[in-house]
Nucleic acid binder design. Structure first.
Lengths: 147, 147
DNA sequence: TCTTGACCTCAACTTAACTTGAGGTTGTAC
DNA sequence: GTACAACCTCAAGTTAAGTTGAGGTCAAGA
């Protein structure tokens, strides 16, 4: 068994579950950099499977292609990344996930604090005042969203 | 102090932090249903502040406008919602948040299981095999994403 | 060698969620 | 009673993330 064999775009699509057009699009955006066959067709490294899998995970987390590219910038193009490369990037993703979870928990706790009164304000019932006095000067329900 | 006073679109924008054009857009999508002044200008209920705040929260959670509309369908238009109305909808959102957190935790755990080897496959190192044997027939890194 | 599926480029279309602009009207403060 | 900010409608533009289609080339098996 010689050097790792190159993959055609179709094979890569089959391995990642992505469409061929999506892979071309990702190339255009710089997420992968295939080389070309003598006839001009794209040839991918086996490590690009993992690269694109990473893209899928990151997208599921809500990262834009630009953000994903910034993460992937820590991986080499053109050669198979080392374990250390992947470890570094996986740890960065772990942080992204943890941050996102913390944010959701904060939002949840704030909603919880208000379920009793049915309002959406951080300060209990501030806006559910029957006289509707508050709110003429107040900050409004945006509080739930703000830090 | 008589009946709750109506809000102009500009006032509602100021109170929610949304742009005027976004509020018009949300009306078009059915998220709010203002009545009109004699001259044809939009007039909003005070409760629409909370309605739109809910929209902002739900959007932050990644719900599309269609999904948000489905949630809001449980609230009455044209009259101020009751506490019970808001409690019901808040609880539904709590579930959305909890589900999303659980999903993130699952993804995180799976990544964690692989940080040691640097691969992105659920099965440790299945794809990081130096001989590159696996993967000719295997399921590939998509496993991290699948259930 | 020939055929045919897989691949190529480039341009245009799609959907979501808005924004921007043109051209005109309302309402309120002086 | 008039100025002018705020409002109105409707059409078109914008960004992200791709998809679709036309018209043409490559490569691998019979």
């Amino acid at each position: 068994m010689p050097e790792t064999k190159a993959l055609t775009i179709g094979a890569l699509a089959a391995r990642t579950g992505l469409s061929v057009s999506a892979i071309r699009f990702y190339e255009e955006k710089g997420l992968v950099e295939p080389f070309r066959s003598s006839g001009g067709q794209r040839r991918f490294l086996r490590s690009d499977i993992r690269r694109l899998s990473f893209v899928l995970i990151a997208q599921q987390l809500g990262l834009s292609i630009g953000e994903i590219e910034r993460q992937l910038a820590n991986l080499p193009h053109g050669r198979t990344p080392t374990q250390a490369d992947w470890t570094r990037i996986s740890k960065a993703m772990r942080k992204v996930i943890n941050d996102r979870i913390a944010e959701l928990e904060r939002t949840r706790d704030r909603l919880d604090g208000c379920i009793g009164c049915g309002c959406l304000s951080l300060k209990k019932c501030q806006l559910y005042n029957p006289e509707d006095r508050v709110g003429l000067k107040g900050p409004g329900p945006r509080l739930v969203l703000e830090d």
